[in-house]
Design a protein around this nucleic acid. Structure first.
Length: 157
DNA sequence: GCCAACGTTGGC
DNA sequence: GCCAACGTTGGC
């Protein structure tokens, strides 16, 4: 199975690409949306590529890439009452939420903004550009991955 | 800070 | 199971 590609959203004020670079391998925890959970649990695999997207900031942009180091496994922060996103319905025996491990791979010399994405016909149909699209874990096609990455002029981190 | 577009919750 | 109220996301 060839690697798949994804777009992960993050608000840089809460967790930025630089934070991920600093942390090395990081647990992508706290996802509490069922559709995103299903992707994490079933489809995001070690070796997959991630477009790292900064939301709720200026400029909103894809700022780099990351690599999935470990595929979906239970999000243990859900049953930790002191975590940021506790869910009392989740337990080790019956986990509801899942996470993956990420490592930063590249930083873009040219962060690719929403305007840039919209203006490029090859990627203007990306889910992230859709009005009202709040999903924080989105699939990206191989073609979209290639185009966005090339536009970003990636530099290994 | 506004608010549209969702997703979730809970009374019935 | 409906749906109004509520909470959240996230671009603007």
């Amino acid at each position: 199975m060839p690697a798949r590609y994804w777009l992960f959203k993050s608000e840089p004020s809460s967790y930025s690409l630089d934070d991920l670079i600093r942390d090395g391998v990081a647990e992508w925890d706290g996802v509490r949306n069922y559709q995103a959970r299903n992707s994490l649990r079933d489809d995001v695999k070690a070796g997959d590529g991630v477009l790292f997207y900064h939301s709720s900031t200026d400029p909103i942009a894809v700022v780099g890439t990351a690599t999935v180091m470990r595929g979906g496994y239970p999000d243990h922060t859900a049953w930790d009452p002191r975590s940021k996103h506790p869910d009392p319905k989740s337990s080790p025996d019956n986990p509801i939420w899942y996470m993956v491990d990420l490592r930063a791979a590249e930083r873009f010399r040219n962060p690719v903004t929403m305007d840039t994405l919209r203006a490029n016909a090859a990627v203007s149909d990306m889910l992230v550009l859709r009005r009202g699209m709040r999903l924080s874990i989105q699939p990206v096609t191989t073609a979209q991955w290639k185009v966005v990455r090339a536009m970003g002029r990636p530099q290994a981190v």
